[in-house]
Simulated scan of single mutants.
Amino acid sequence: MNKNSIVFIGLDTHKEFFEVAHELEGRDEHVIHDGRISSAKASVIKMVRDFQSKYPQATLHFVYEAGPCGYWIYRLLTSLGHCCYVVAPSLLPKKPGERVKTDRKDAMKLAHLLKINDVPIIYVPEAEDEAVRDLSRARQTATNDLNHARLQLKGFLLRNNIRYDGTANWSAKHIRWLNELILPHPAQHIVLQEMLHTIDERMRRLARLVNELEHQVKQWRYYPVVKAIQAMRGIRFLVAASLIAELGDLRRFDTPRKLMKYLGLTPKEESSGDHRRLGKITKCGNGRARRLLIEGAHAYKHPPKVSTEIQKRQEMLSKEVIDIAWQAQLRLCRRYQRLIHRGKHRNLVVTAIAREMIAYIWAISREIAIAPIDVAKRKSRVPA
Rank of each mutant, 00 (worst) to 15 (best):
V382A: 13
L80E: 10
E246F: 09
I229M: 09
L265S: 08
I294M: 12
K379Y: 11
H185G: 10
S318W: 07
E309I: 03
R75G: 04
R366N: 13
P186D: 00
R139C: 13
H61N: 14
A371V: 14
Y300G: 00
I340G: 01
L348K: 04
V132E: 02
R378E: 06
E320R: 14
K268S: 11
P125A: 08
R202S: 07
P96Q: 14
D374H: 07
P256D: 02
T143L: 15
P96Y: 11
Y85Q: 10
P267F: 00
I73W: 06
N4V: 05
V119P: 05
V132W: 03
R159Y: 00
V226F: 07
A363H: 07
I310H: 06
K344Y: 13
I340W: 01
V124I: 07
I294D: 02
R252K: 06
L158C: 11
Q314C: 14
I175H: 03
N169S: 08
T167C: 00
M357E: 02
H345W: 03
M195D: 05
T198M: 05
S171V: 07
E180S: 08
Q219C: 13
A149Q: 10
V217N: 03
R27F: 07
A111I: 11
K154D: 04
W177D: 00
R208V: 14
E130F: 05
A231N: 04
G70A: 08
R346Y: 00
R378I: 03
I294H: 02
W72F: 14
V86Y: 09
R205A: 05
A363P: 11
R233T: 05
Y64C: 05
R150H: 03
I182S: 15
R381H: 05
I32G: 03
R236E: 04
R208T: 13
V225F: 01
G155S: 15
R338N: 06
I116C: 04
T282M: 06
K54E: 08
R208D: 09
A245Q: 09
K94H: 07
A88N: 14
S272R: 07
T143W: 13
D249I: 03
I244H: 04
R133W: 04
H14R: 02
R334T: 14
I6V: 14
D28F: 03
R221K: 12
G70N: 06
C284N: 09
R208P: 05
L213P: 01
S171H: 09
S365D: 01
T167K: 08
A172V: 03
K54D: 07
L60F: 12
S43A: 15
T59I: 15
L206T: 15
A363S: 13
L263M: 05
N4Q: 06
A354N: 02
L76Q: 04
Q152R: 15
P56R: 08
S53W: 03
R139A: 13
A376T: 11
F156P: 13
W220T: 09
R75N: 09
M203A: 04
D129L: 05
H174G: 00
I368P: 02
V210P: 00
